[in-house]
């Protein structure tokens, strides 16, 4: 029983991390039709920005709570700005040439990920977190690290926030309308280009946030940190249905749990099942679980 609970909580935390990555990817794809390969690099940068902030404010192996909270803010803002710069500086030049936009994000992802290795070397770095976060709590007889709960809580908050953003705000309306028919929205006199930048920055900020929590989850960071998780985030987005935030949340839970339980029983089954799941879902339901078909 305790093993089951531990696997369940860890699987859900993994799902939460995938969701934080996938939510931004899905939002960006929904509006812009661009599968953002730089998202993994944004995730890595979120982790490194947080690590750098913590190292500056409270050096040592255990971070103060204040430093950790500050790190979350810094990571989110820095990566959000980085994403805005990428969109406005590079992607904007290639509008309506989606394949080239994808290729550019691929190149940016490569360069940005490696930039962390250029600046801070390629070695893995331990990620300091507050003592209460790396401590454990006992739930139904299972000893679960606290950062699992934080990660799950953050994902739930982000999911709620995004649904509110999409359904209740003017920008959310533009994003939803733009996903349906971009040209019509533009014809109505709305500045879709600015919405692109905002959505891309928002997606980047979410990836940055995910990077901080991901770093706490794994306990250490390295330059390939984001790219490794990006593949699973892609799988989540595509299974959930590109452009559907609730679909991503649902798929993240399925993938996180399948991977965690599978890898517990054999070292490879979890990863293998997840990739096969993607192939099966796409072949049976090409639009994903909750995606629009086109």
């Amino acid at each position: 029983m305790s093993t089951f609970v531990l696997l369940l909580m860890t699987g859900l935390a993994l799902a939460a991390m995938y969701f934080l990555l996938a939510a931004g990817l899905s939002l960006i794809f929904g509006l812009m039709d661009v599968l953002n390969f730089a998202h993994g690099a944004f995730f890595t940068w979120g982790a490194y920005a947080a690590w750098w902030t913590i190292g500056l404010v409270s050096p040592g192996l255990v971070a103060s709570t204040g430093a950790f909270l500050l790190a979350i803010v810094v990571a989110t803002v820095v990566v959000g700005l980085m994403a805005a710069a990428v969109e406005a500086g590079l992607l904007r030049r290639l509008y309506n040439r989606h394949i080239y936009q994808v290729l550019v994000t691929l190149g940016i992802g490569l360069a940005l990920s490696q930039l962390t290795s250029v600046i801070w070397q390629a070695d893995a770095r331990p990620f300091p977190q507050p003592a209460w976060l790396s401590a454990t709590s006992t739930v139904l007889g299972a000893t679960v690290p606290n950062n699992r709960f934080l990660l799950i809580g953050a994902a739930v908050v982000v999911l709620g926030g995004m649904l509110l953003f999409l359904r209740r705000t003017r920008y959310g309306l533009i994003v939803r309308a733009g996903s349906e028919n971009r040209d019509m929205v533009r014809a109505l006199g709305i500045d879709v280009d600015r919405a692109f930048t905002v959505v891309f920055a928002l997606g980047g900020a979410l990836a940055g946030l995910g990077g901080v929590f991901g770093a706490a989850y794994f306990g250490s960071i390295n330059p390939n940190f984001g790219t490794v998780n990006l593949i699973f985030a892609f799988i989540v987005v595509v299974i959930g249905g590109l452009g559907s935030v609730t679909g991503s949340a649902l798929a993240a839970v399925v993938i996180g749990l399948a991977q965690q339980f599978g890898n517990y029983y054999t070292t490879w089954a979890g990863d293998f099942v997840v990739v096969l799941l993607l192939a099966v879902v796409l072949l049976v339901r090409p639009g994903g679980l909750m995606g629009r078909t086109r």
Binding site: L90, L103, V104, L106, G107, I108, G109, L110, A111, L112, S113, Q114, L115, S117, V118
Partner: peptide, 11 residues
């Protein structure tokens, strides 16, 4: 870091 350079060249 060749990959960094390749990323830039690629873009």
């Amino acid at each position: 870091d060749p990959l960094f350079i390749f990323g830039l060249i690629f873009v």
